[in-house]
Structures are given as C-alpha cells and as structure tokens.
Simulated assay, not measured.
Amino acid sequence: MLAMALEQAGFCVRGAEDAQQAQALLDELPPDLIVLDWMMPGLSGVEWAKRLRRDERYREIPIILVTARGEEEDKIRGLETGADDYITKPFSPRELAARVKAVLRRAGRPGGEARVAQGGILLDMEQHRVSIDDQPLVLSPTEYRLLEFFMTHPDKVFSRSQLLDQVWGRSTYIEERTVDVHIRRLRRVLAEYGREEFVQTVRGFGYRFSASA
C-alpha cells in the first residue's frame, strides 16, 4: 500500500520484506531515501538503521522510521539510531509523501523538489510535464518515467535490468530489449532539440543520462 502511494506521488519505489532483502537491494542500487519499519521480521528496523549509520557507504542516506510506537521514549530511541524523521501509525499516504519530500529537500537529494532541471530540460514532477528551452515536450507515459528516472539520477550508469525494475517495476515481466526500444524513442524526441546525446550508451554496462559536456 505504501509503495503504491509513493509511486502515485511520483517516486520510484523498491520494496523489501526484511533487512536481509533490503540490504541486497541497497548493495545493488543505493536509494535516495529509506522508509523503514521498526518491527521488521528478524533484524528490527532500529538495529538495521544502526548498522547503516556505521557503514560509510550508506550513512548519508536519509531514513524515515515508521512505527506504531508513539511514546516519547520510543521516538527518542528511534531518532537516536540516526533516523532523519519518525512517523507514527496510523498515518495518511499524503502525510508520508510530504514527509519524504521534506526529508529529501533537507538532504539536498533528488525528489525533494517538484522540479528538476538538467541541460535546458525542465521536468515538473507534480504536473508530469516536460519542456526544453521553454518548449513543451510530448512524451508517452513510459518515456516520461524513463526521463524522470534518468534526470533524478544524473551521471549514473544503469543496466537494462535495473531500468526495468525502476521504470517498469519488478512485477512486470518484459524483455530487456524493451528498454532499448524506449531509449531510441526518447532519443528521437530529444534529437528534435539537439539533446539526444544526453542519453548515453555505456558499452557492456547499460545507459546513463548526462547533461554535462
């Protein structure tokens, strides 16, 4: 339910059932933010958060702790793990999305702002609109999601399987060639404005979006 709510708010979401699965996802592709349940099976969310804060690779990733514990001592204990925010059940999906945006904004991470600009391309994630040099861009829903993911993760290389997971979702079973088809379509649209080189092929690895020279 939370994943669906955050996806509707414009975020790319990956879900994990426990700390072990979450750690595997983290090692594969670190996220911009972690929404972490206190009462996970096995290793608790609090204990896993402590481990993340001791690991220099992940200590800067913002964490929002989700729990049914509403007592002041519990909140203090949760925040002492290094969590950036604390939200008590029950809460509305809109409140969670607002908290996520606020924490991302404080951390200076992608997704904290409703708009992202790269190389003259302006992406409005609230209105799902794109413009280049103030000219509206017409994209299919998939092309939009692909461009949104690229622009919120600039200069990073992603494999086809990673793009499938992030843009199409893990529950979607389609061939990796589908990524190539949509990459070509996105480049074709960007080519009309001289921006096709922003979507780059990294041979042997996948694709990267870069607006830098």
Score class of each variant (00 low, 15 high):
202 V>C: 05
79 L>E: 01
180 D>A: 12
26 L>N: 00
208 R>A: 10
2 L>M: 12
70 G>R: 11
177 R>H: 13
78 G>A: 00
101 K>E: 11
183 I>N: 02
68 A>N: 15
49 A>R: 03
61 I>M: 05
206 G>S: 01
39 M>G: 14
174 I>N: 10
175 E>L: 12
71 E>C: 14
84 D>H: 08
162 Q>S: 00
49 A>T: 01
72 E>T: 15
132 I>F: 08
205 F>D: 11
167 V>A: 07
115 R>G: 03
205 F>A: 05
99 R>T: 00
205 F>R: 10
7 E>P: 01
156 K>N: 13
73 E>A: 09
135 Q>K: 07
20 Q>L: 14
83 A>D: 02
108 G>M: 02
124 D>C: 13
35 V>Y: 04
45 G>M: 02
59 R>D: 10
141 P>R: 04
121 I>M: 09
142 T>P: 08
196 E>Q: 15
20 Q>M: 12
39 M>H: 11
146 L>I: 05
11 F>S: 05
93 P>Y: 07
132 I>D: 09
67 T>L: 02
67 T>W: 02
154 P>E: 10
12 C>N: 11
76 I>W: 08
189 V>N: 07
2 L>T: 09
187 R>A: 09
170 R>S: 15
212 S>D: 14
197 E>K: 11
147 L>K: 02
86 Y>S: 03
114 A>I: 06
71 E>L: 13
1 M>S: 13
117 A>H: 12
109 R>V: 04
139 L>G: 07
168 W>N: 03
99 R>L: 10
45 G>E: 00
165 D>P: 13
121 I>D: 10
38 W>D: 15
84 D>C: 02
22 A>D: 11
149 F>Q: 00
47 E>L: 08
138 V>M: 05
206 G>D: 00
52 L>T: 03
107 A>V: 03
139 L>A: 01
131 S>Y: 08
160 R>T: 06
114 A>H: 06
148 E>W: 07
196 E>I: 13
71 E>W: 13
105 R>F: 06
112 G>I: 08
175 E>W: 14
188 R>P: 07
120 G>D: 05
36 L>W: 03
4 M>H: 14
10 G>K: 01
1 M>L: 09
179 V>M: 07
155 D>M: 05
88 T>Q: 07
156 K>A: 10
146 L>T: 01
150 F>W: 10
106 R>N: 12
26 L>T: 01
103 V>T: 14
52 L>F: 02
77 R>D: 09
45 G>P: 04
52 L>P: 09
74 D>F: 06
182 H>M: 15
186 L>D: 03
